[in-house]
Design a protein around this nucleic acid. Structure first.
Lengths: 120, 120
DNA sequence: AACATAGTTAACCAAATGGTTTAATGAATC
DNA sequence: GATTCATTAAACCATTTGGTTAACTATGTT
């Protein structure tokens, strides 16, 4: 039975957000474009470490990179956050009781019903 | 310096959400309270594995457990989702520069003023 | 008492994560 | 052309993660 095929993009986005260093990088990017070195500078961690964090964020689609010469300019990309917040909002609202208007934002059907009485 | 490892709760919440199996469990819990066995039954994975997933969700505060006899009744707890969605929305809004209908659902004051263009 | 049920804990494993240091790549500068 | 600068890649390490099976705890049931 197919249980997995849920888009793994959400996995990547949430995983990217689960690290405080990466969230800090995203917060920093609110101020605007920054180079890798600039982002790393206050972070008290090696440059390769920051580079890796940026890659995680990039793989999740949360930032874009503009390479110019030897300098990489990083900007935040909010689009994947949309899906993430949609997922959360839909569940939060359902649990909190007001199901109605959020359902409109949800394009995905609810999880498959069990329908699997194997043995008892 | 300002990159203090402040909220590990957000770490736990996002990490919990980063796994499709766990998101599936939360989705399932929209239908209401369920026992561990019931949650595990359609999941094609061992019971201890599900038990671990539930513990991750519980550690993130995303579910509550009511033990009655030998049966554990699990319910979703939406409260931590609030903080998570607040974090996301605040960043998304800043990056997108504009609100949409989803923003209205998160009635939370914008935490930081900046919104300035760029610097270098 | 004996057994079945519900669930967790323990021990283990492979793979991923988050960090390091040491190259390596490629662009700017002398 | 050699050197510095910005960044990534490689190799390594410790810890965490997501899964397994086997054992355990505790509660029901007969």
């Amino acid at each position: 039975m197919r249980r997995a095929p849920q888009p793994l993009l959400l996995d990547l986005v949430f995983a990217a957000l689960s690290d405080a260093t990466r969230r800090g990088l995203l917060s920093r990017l609110i101020e605007g474009e920054a180079t890798v070195g600039t982002l790393a500078e206050p972070l008290q961690m090696s440059l390769p470490a920051v580079s890796k964090h940026l890659r995680v964020l990039e793989d999740a689609g949360l930032l874009k990179r503009r390479i110019e010469g030897r300098t990489h300019y990083i900007t935040a990309n909010p689009k994947p956050l949309r899906e993430a917040v949609n997922w959360i909002e839909r569940h939060r609202q359902m649990w909190e009781g007001s199901f109605d208007r959020l359902a409109a934002l949800v394009e995905q059907p609810p999880p498959e019903p069990p329908a699997n009485p194997k043995k008892s």
